[in-house]
Design a binder for these strands. Structure first.
Lengths: 207, 207
DNA sequence: GTCTATATTCAGATAGAC
DNA sequence: GTCTATCTGAATATAGAC
């Protein structure tokens, strides 16, 4: 039975996500990760072989969710519905996977030195697809002729900022943590700017 | 004469900005900073006393520009003009101070452990002022009733993303560096989403 | 499978010659 | 003011007892 093994690996992974998110890769100590997981330090090496290996597993844990966030772009749908769903999903990910999300952001910010080329290629291919999709809508006259790359960069930035810069968000709003209503308001604000700002046509006008 | 001193300090500061931006504080080595500056390592300690001190100076070099970016909010003006100027200035800063900007982002992302409380307070006060300003416009019916905090978070995120996540931007666009036209397109896209998306009234409709 | 005690590496910092 | 040579501490990683 490997239930102890699985349980311990899970404990360490969770602790590592939190530690790497708070301090960054280089500033994190494996001893602190072990302490946080409530396990002795050698266990970290026993299960993950090295600090860098452990980091890569944390990093990898966010790639799949990030790719799945683009699901709305992979099935036919109204532009407005696709964009709304995309924004909501991105915000949900930045909330549910806050730590891994931050680790990913830090990794990208420093040039993605640990992100496997294959992973980078997958994410890039999906991004290109999304851009092409938006360009298609523009060509069909379904939305204003904005630059699809910059639109996507803005959506990424605005949705990820809640995980990446939570300290700033907390400081400015004066809240220690955002609640459901706050995330709802964030999604509504971003959605509004995208839909109205880019004049995305609605088949069944609601808003 | 201290011209040598000033020159060396400047060389080290520039090298440190680049190094910290690329690798982050913990992963940066003072020996690499010295090499990049073309000076021997002890000079770094001679002029800056410690690695952390040097880091703080780099961090501090971006705070003043960031505060000045809010200048449009500190003088009376049409909401649309203020927002347009603000977005352009934020983008300009993220371009002109790309390294320090990234160092600042990384610092904030990890909970601002090195940012002096006084600096944090200054930035926070300015942010609160901007939010109040936007709320005032909403109350006067000059723009739609969006959440001013979330609007500001989106503007921050969208404008800073060009410095912070330049690797991603380069990878997705396939360009090694963005040119004037790219930054112009970025500013136009973000401005459009803010002005149109939030239905900001124009005294002299142009767009 | 668990953990103490230790080896090894490496980077921050400095003493002291020039 | 400049830089070689070195100290020191800390963190990754492991050997080996239990």
């Amino acid at each position: 039975m490997s239930s102890i093994r699985e349980r311990n690996k899970e404990l360490i992974l969770r602790a590592a996500s939190e530690e790497f998110a708070e301090k960054g890769f280089a500033a994190s100590k494996t001893s602190d990760i072990a302490d946080r997981a409530g396990l002795p330090k050698p266990n970290v090496y026993y299960y993950f072989k090295s600090k860098e290996n452990l980091y890569r597993e944390v990093l990898d844990s966010i790639v799949e969710p990030l790719l799945q966030a683009s699901a709305p772009f992979n099935q036919p749908g109204e532009p407005a519905d696709v964009l709304r769903a995309y924004i909501r999903t991105k915000i949900r990910i930045s909330r549910e996977h806050a730590c891994a999300s931050k680790v990913f952001a830090s990794e990208i910010m420093h040039g993605a030195p640990h992100l496997p080329a294959e992973r980078a290629a997958q994410l890039n291919a999906q991004a290109s697809h999304n851009v092409a999709c938006i360009q298609g809508w523009i060509d069909q006259g379904l939305m204003a002729a904005v630059d699809p790359h910059h639109l996507m960069f803005s959506i990424w930035a605005a949705t990820q900022t809640y995980a990446d810069f939570d300290w700033q968000i907390s400081t400015v709003t004066g809240k220690t943590a955002l609640d459901d209503a706050d995330y709802e308001a964030a999604a509504a604000t971003i959605t509004r700017m995208v839909i109205k700002g880019c004049e995305v046509k609605e088949a069944n006008p609601v808003a």
